[in-house]
Structures are given as structure tokens and as C-alpha cells.
């Protein structure tokens, strides 16, 4: 029995050592050749290049995929789009904090997304802080990630060190799919909702965002206020931005009695309380009036509440003009 045990332990150790060596190689290959193609990693690399050359950023865009897909920084001088898919105010807060305090970048104007769904508890479901540990653990305190995600410190650290875990699907996608275009953090999507079942998709989207969800989630409010306070501390002018949606999206919202006025009154009151003067750029209904546009308005969207590259370029130009008009240059 003793011999059997020793043989088992010896074989086990050799097997584990081979496994560890292979795992390290695969993890390295993933970081080097796959993760670098990931949108978040590419945005990070672009940001590093940006801050290498400049110590000041005139316009910083923060938000989730609405902002990420909507504002092309090429239309705004010295700007960067740091928004990203599924980012809540929590992720945006930590990104801003790093930029201002760790990377010592001076920001003049902050374009902060405040859309209808931005404070819905739905946003807490796919929060990157709950799963993208490989990225966030490098600049967010593990304690904060633990509190938000509920993950153990062990899980956070393991996933930070070994991002390859559970990423086989991403590897296949990155290997076989064409990566999306990204410029200064802006994700350019060419897909078009017009060919799809718009009504059905819109109902599903709105229901997902609002049905059975808390309209204003306390955690998201907490981080929204933190962003505002940080902006005031660093003398950053806050510009709250409402991004465009399809008209059908608005109709479904109305059918579901999702109110806008009281919601925005509350959001603006918080902005007023914490930063004093702030600006609002409201593009919610930018594409509602078909007669203004060359194509069908849905041609400007990749889904009911995300503009595609075509829509983003129109919007970005408008943002640029509106900022000039308001003297925010």
C-alpha cells in the first residue's frame, strides 16, 4: 500500500507540474495573442498611447455601450472615449479615478451618459466588475471588487492572473471573427437593425432593462455621485449626455409606463447638488423625425438603443457643434 501511495504521489506531482507548465504557456499565449485583440484591451492600449503623448484631455466620454458606440472622438479635439459595454457608474468611477489620480491626466470636460436605463438594477447583472477581473483588478482595490461582485478574493486574484480561465469561447471568436474597428476608444459597428425584427427586439430589450428591475439602484446612484464629486474636486465641467434611441424604443417605454420626467429631475438634482453648474446634451429623439434623414432612421442603429457607425458619425458631429455653441471648447 505504501508503495502504491508513493507511486501515486510521484505520478501526481509529475502530472501536476506538466499541467502547470502547459497552463502557464496557454495563459501567456492567450494574453499575448488573444486578449490583446479584445476591445477592452485595445481601448486600454490606445489610452496608454494617448497619455504617453498628452497630459491633458479636453473631452472624456464615460458611459456604457451607448456612449462607447456613439461618440467618435475624431470629431472632438483632444478627446478619448473611455466608455465600454456594460460599464456602470462604478466601473466609470474607477476608470476616472485612475486617469485623474494615478495617471495624472487633466480632464477639462466630462461627457457622462445618463440614459433611461443607466440607473436600472438591470445594469448590475452583467457588470464588468463582476467578471472582468483581469482588467479591473489591476487598478480597483480587491476589497471594492469583492464588495461589488460578491466574488472571493481568491477568485478575483486567480482570474486576474490567469484570464484564460473560461475564455475558450472568446478565443474562438477572436480567432475566427473579424475584430470590430475601434478609434480612440470608440467602437465602430457596421451592423444594421433594419434587417431584423425591430418590434420584437425592442420589446425584449425594454423589458430586459425595466421589467421587474429597480428603476434607480442605490449602488449606481452612489457611484454616480462619487463621479460628480470627483469632477468637482478636479474642476472638470460635467456634461450629461442622453444618447439616441429608436422611436419604437420610446413607444415601448411609454406603453410600459416608464416615466422620464421624475427620473431626470432626480438625476439632474443630484448633479446640481454635487457639481453646481452642469450641462445637458439631449439626443434621445435625434433620429425620431424620419424627414431629416437620407436613410430610414433604423439604418442608423445596430439595435433599438445603440447607434451604429453611420449614426455615430452624425451624432458626433452634432455633439461637436453643440459643444461649440455652448462655448464648451
Amino acid at each position: 500500500m505504501k508503495k502504491e501511495k508513493i507511486r501515486f504521489i510521484k505520478t501526481g506531482i509529475i502530472f501536476v507540474l506538466i499541467f502547470i507548465a502547459l497552463f502557464m504557456i496557454i495563459n501567456f499565449v492567450y494574453i499575448k495573442f488573444f486578449l490583446s485583440k479584445n476591445l477592452q484591451a485595445r481601448a486600454e492600449a490606445e489610452l496608454q498611447n494617448f497619455i504617453k503623448e498628452k497630459a491633458q484631455m479636453d473631452y472624456l466620454v464615460l458611459g456604457d455601450s451607448h456612449a462607447h458606440q456613439a461618440v467618435n472622438p475624431e470629431y472632438l479635439p483632444n478627446s478619448f472615449n473611455l466608455a465600454h459595454s456594460s460599464n456602470t457608474y462604478a466601473e466609470n468611477y474607477y476608470k476616472l479615478r485612475r486617469l485623474l489620480y494615478d495617471q495624472k491626466i487633466k480632464v477639462k470636460y466630462l461627457l457622462l451618459e445618463v440614459d433611461m436605463h443607466s440607473f436600472s438594477s438591470y445594469m448590475k447583472g452583467p457588470m464588468p466588475l463582476k467578471r472582468e477581473f483581469w482588467y479591473y483588478a489591476s487598478f480597483v482595490p480587491v476589497k471594492d471588487i469583492r464588495n461589488i461582485s460578491g466574488a472571493s478574493e481568491f477568485d478575483i486574484r486567480i482570474n486576474h492572473l490567469f484570464p484564460v480561465l473560461g475564455r475558450g469561447e472568446d478565443m474562438l471568436a477572436l480567432l475566427f471573427s473579424k475584430p470590430s474597428k475601434q478609434v480612440l476608444g470608440w467602437a465602430s459597428y457596421d451592423t444594421n437593425i433594419s434587417q431584423q425584427n425591430i418590434t420584437k427586439l425592442t420589446v425584449q430589450r425594454v423589458e430586459g432593462q425595466f421589467l421587474g428591475q429597480e428603476r434607480i439602484d442605490p449602488l449606481l446612484i452612489e457611484y454616480y455621485v462619487k463621479i460628480l464629486k470627483m469632477a468637482r474636486e478636479k474642476n472638470i465641467t460635467v456634461i450629461l449626455v442622453k444618447y439616441p434611441v429608436l422611436k419604437q424604443y420610446d413607444e415601448v417605454l411609454n406603453e410600459m409606463n416608464v416615466t422620464k420626467e421624475d427620473y431626470y429631475d432626480y438625476i439632474y438634482a443630484l448633479a446640481s447638488e454635487h457639481v453646481g453648474k452642469y450641462y445637458v446634451l439631449d439626443y434621445y429623439d435625434l433620429f425620431f423625425n424620419q424627414s431629416k434623414y437620407e436613410f430610414t432612421t433604423s439604418d442608423y442603429f445596430s439595435d433599438p438603443d445603440h447607434v451604429n457607425a453611420l449614426g455615430a458619425n452624425i451624432l458626433s458631429e452634432k455633439v461637436s457643434n453643440d459643444l461649440k455653441e455652448k462655448g464648451l471648447e
Binding site: P126, E169, D170, L172, A173, N197, K200, L201, G208
Partner: peptide
């Protein structure tokens, strides 16, 4: 088109 399969991607 328009069918939502949760967080499941094509891959």
C-alpha cells in the same frame, strides 16, 4: 433575428 439567448454568443 431578434432572438435573445441570454449572454450566449454564436461561438
Amino acid at each position: 433575428s431578434g432572438v435573445y439567448f441570454g449572454a450566449m454568443t454564436r461561438w
